[in-house]
Amino acid sequence: MELLWIIALIIFVVYMIISDKKVKNSKDYKEALSQNKKPPKKLLVKRWWSWGLILILICGFFVSASNDAESHNEAYKATSHRSKKRSSVKKKKKVSVSTKTSKPKPIKNTAKAVTLGAGKYKVGRDIKPGRYVIKAVQGSGNLSNSDATINVILGNDVDSDQVTSFTTNLVKNDKINLDGIESTSFTPTPDKYTYKTQVSAGIWLVGRDIKPGRYVIRPIKGSGNLISDGSDDNLNEILGPDADNGQVSKVTADLTAGEVILSNLELIGLTKK
């Protein structure tokens, strides 16, 4: 929206310059100046309303930019269960947290099962908002969304950095991309939450999916990023068997209620310490 304000401002300034140039080149204006008389037509640059309009356009730009930034922040807060982009290099990543609880509570899942082919889809139009287990039914390829908070390779070849499923929340107006996958299923997760000691690729909430406590976390299948957000000591590791590429075979961590865990591994195990 702010682009429209900038365009309007540029158009008016250009119009003002061209208009004043025409007035200055007019015969009446030149004669008035040569005779030390007041020109018959006042230049736009000397009119108060011209500068008032410029000020309004500038203010409109800043207000629009502020509103867009606020809308972006609200949309980002709604993605508390969405994954971050897969990376082969360990980086500090952030997953927003919007819910804190100390024990599982039944929550009505609004998701509805659907199977889709390759393409681009909008949550709220093509996919109902809710929490899903997403799987490649036929073929393999990339599952991602419009702001790259979801980016994994779905398939059945775990040795090729593919994951057989990805569990996440899909929020309204998000855009989902299915690239190279012939058929992908979106299956609603159960309303009832249970504590797990093994979790597949996806986003999981401590206090709901995982019991708070101190754990040793190990890769069971596959390798990839394990990160978290919502505690004083967030996780940021690449789990796997290849130490020469910066992977670690295990990590010990205190998981606290409300902490969000993101795993891009096929399966990890959590052992109470």
Results as ranks from 00 to 15, higher is better:
248 V>I: 15
212 P>A: 14
90 K>T: 14
93 K>E: 15
220 I>H: 02
21 K>R: 13
25 N>C: 10
110 T>H: 10
106 P>G: 00
252 T>K: 11
22 K>G: 04
271 T>Q: 14
203 I>H: 00
238 I>F: 06
107 I>V: 15
209 D>L: 00
271 T>F: 12
37 K>P: 08
238 I>Q: 04
239 L>N: 04
140 S>W: 11
241 P>Q: 06
246 G>Y: 07
224 G>N: 02
207 G>W: 00
144 S>Q: 08
114 V>Q: 08
241 P>L: 06
43 L>F: 07
31 E>C: 01
21 K>E: 14
37 K>E: 15
219 P>M: 03
135 K>F: 02
130 G>R: 03
231 S>L: 08
138 Q>G: 02
27 K>N: 12
215 Y>N: 05
104 P>K: 05
256 T>N: 10
228 S>G: 10
4 L>T: 14
245 N>I: 05
11 I>E: 09
55 L>F: 14
131 R>Q: 12
224 G>T: 08
256 T>R: 12
244 D>V: 09
90 K>F: 00
124 G>A: 05
20 D>P: 11
263 S>Y: 02
262 L>P: 00
201 A>K: 01
173 N>A: 08
215 Y>I: 11
62 F>K: 00
256 T>H: 09
192 K>H: 00
2 E>N: 12
71 S>G: 02
116 L>T: 04
204 W>G: 04
33 L>T: 07
139 G>Q: 11
258 G>H: 08
128 K>W: 03
74 E>Y: 06
167 T>E: 11
19 S>N: 13
135 K>D: 05
165 S>T: 09
131 R>I: 12
172 K>M: 05
69 A>N: 05
104 P>V: 01
60 G>P: 11
